[in-house]
């Protein structure tokens, strides 16, 4: 797996909401060198560039479980709650999410609005 990825370095992940672009080295639920760790969704994964000497992974994003949009894990673009949901779908089905999530999103919306005005 690693062999093939290093030969094709041009695989890039692009968030279809915010446009974040980054190369990725693995797609799936079991990134290399993670031992007991398993991802609960198929993810675009890269080597964590912020710990250059260690084999740590970094999840960049995955596809929305509803609309299959490719989204990054940034809180402006997606949310994970047992499954990945893009922000569009979250907003569409906001009522089905637990109160905690709703409150959190409302709060975030408020603060970002405050920052704009």
């Amino acid at each position: 797996m690693e062999q093939s990825t290093s030969e094709t370095p041009q695989k890039t992940f692009t968030c279809q909401l915010c446009g974040l672009v980054s190369p990725y080295s693995y797609y799936g639920q079991k990134p290399p060198n993670t031992r007991a760790i398993v991802l609960l969704e198929e993810c675009f994964v890269t080597k964590d560039p912020f710990t250059p000497d260690k084999e740590k992974f970094l999840v960049l994003g995955s596809t929305c479980s509803l609309c299959s949009l490719c989204v990054c894990v940034g809180s402006d673009c997606s949310l994970f709650y047992t499954k990945r949901f893009c922000m569009k779908c979250v907003n569409k089905h906001l009522d089905q999410f637990p109160h905690q999530v709703q409150a959190e999103l409302a709060k975030k919306k408020q603060s970002s609005r405050a920052a704009i005005s």
């Binding site: 398993v38 993810c43 999840v59 709650y81 047992t82 089905h93």
Partner: peptide, 20 residues
């Protein structure tokens, strides 16, 4: 609408996409 099939009881654990 579509049922997302989300668990009834909130748990912060559900926000994490990793398991060990």
């Amino acid at each position: 609408k579509v049922d997302l099939g989300l668990p009834k009881e909130y748990d912060a654990r559900y926000r994490i996409n990793v398991s060990v």
